[in-house]
Write a protein that binds this DNA or RNA. Structure first.
Lengths: 187, 187
DNA sequence: CAGTTTATGATACAGATGTATCACGTAGGA
DNA sequence: TCCTACGTGATACATCTGTATCATAAACTG
């Protein structure tokens, strides 16, 4: 993960991984029999790291946990802010690009993405029922747009166009528009 | 470009490129002395292809050319719809990910991205002055959000989550919200 | 204690990769 | 006609790659 984030995924050979981890090449072979397994392992690890970050961010929002605060917490957690999250997202981006040309992995990623879409759409619908989102919004469409925005912001931050704070503000601005501001209700 | 789009950028060795193009390895070496130059050449070629697609799309919008129609034409052209644009964007995505860990290339891409941001922000400001965008919008912020959305939609289409048509509709929906619908004026 | 798991070390090997070199042909312009 | 540029072919070379195979030792587990 550190290698992918700093020097690119193409630099992550078995030998480089072993060196970076300070272990023998033999040990890398021991746990991840092939390179494919190594990559899948990293991808799974990244997934766990991101999930954990989201969970923590949501928990930090505090009470009361409305659909709106939940969405703010979960989505802003996907924007890299510190060095560690930046590393994670950078490595994830590299792996993600790989999956685009690897049909088996692509299908898996697609399932995940659709699950996330359903998840966010469901929460937006809940927020709508709670009167926090305008009635004429289509929750699924709003979720799709919001998630695409998050992806794009993520990418911009990784490229160094915005810092994490600016990107978070942009996302917050979008969410405020969707949900009528942090403290206010939209009929 | 074809190799990067179909089998991934890591499969684009000098020999594979020569084979795909139906020429000798020697000729690839002859024009692109090193692999780095080859990659830069592809990146430049992709840039030209995308620019051309945008230009054509804008031209196809027909008269009258308002800031709004211009933005619709330019931005929707960035969503892959047919096989060729899909190939281009896929190859571009692969190269883009590479630049993230290659500081010199990253700086170049950043300049380009900031230029695009200024460009779109300028047109949104024009649309605002023409009364097509609400007065309380910050053109630069609206441009940033819109461009990030485009990037995200692009990525989703490449991953196969939406087809080009659906993604274009999502983008259009966002633009309609920003600019008060395709034919209607805000205030 | 015995046996299994976890870990290391030193190599080996076939294949791919970027790059370089030498020779040869073909065309176009001075 | 001579010369320069364009293009092809065959091949060489050092390096890196993923993977495999020896033997060996420490640590845990029943």
């Amino acid at each position: 993960m550190r290698i992918a984030a700093s020097r690119g995924l193409h630099a992550a050979s078995m030998r480089e991984v072993a060196a970076e981890a300070g272990v023998s090449l033999r040990l890398v072979q021991y746990y991840f029999h092939t390179k494919e397994e190594l990559l899948k392992g990293v991808l799974a690890h990244l997934g766990r790291q991101i999930t954990e970050r989201v969970t923590r961010s949501v928990a930090a929002m505090g009470e009361p946990m409305t659909p709106r605060t939940f969405l703010y917490g979960a989505l802003t957690a996907l924007i890299p802010t510190d060095d560690q999250s930046r590393r994670i997202m950078l490595a994830y981006q590299a792996h993600y690009t790989l999956t685009l040309t690897e049909p088996e992995l692509a299908a898996e990623g697609l399932t995940y993405a659709n699950g996330l879409l359903d998840f966010v759409a469901g929460h937006i619908r809940q927020a709508q029922e709670a009167g926090e989102v305008a009635a004429d919004e289509d929750p699924r469409q709003a979720a799709a747009i919001t998630l695409a925005l998050v992806t794009g912001l993520q990418s911009s931050v990784l490229a160094g166009q915005y810092d994490g704070r600016t990107a978070t503000e942009l996302l917050t601005s979008h969410l405020d528009r969707l949900m009528g501001g942090p403290g206010q209700q939209v009929i």
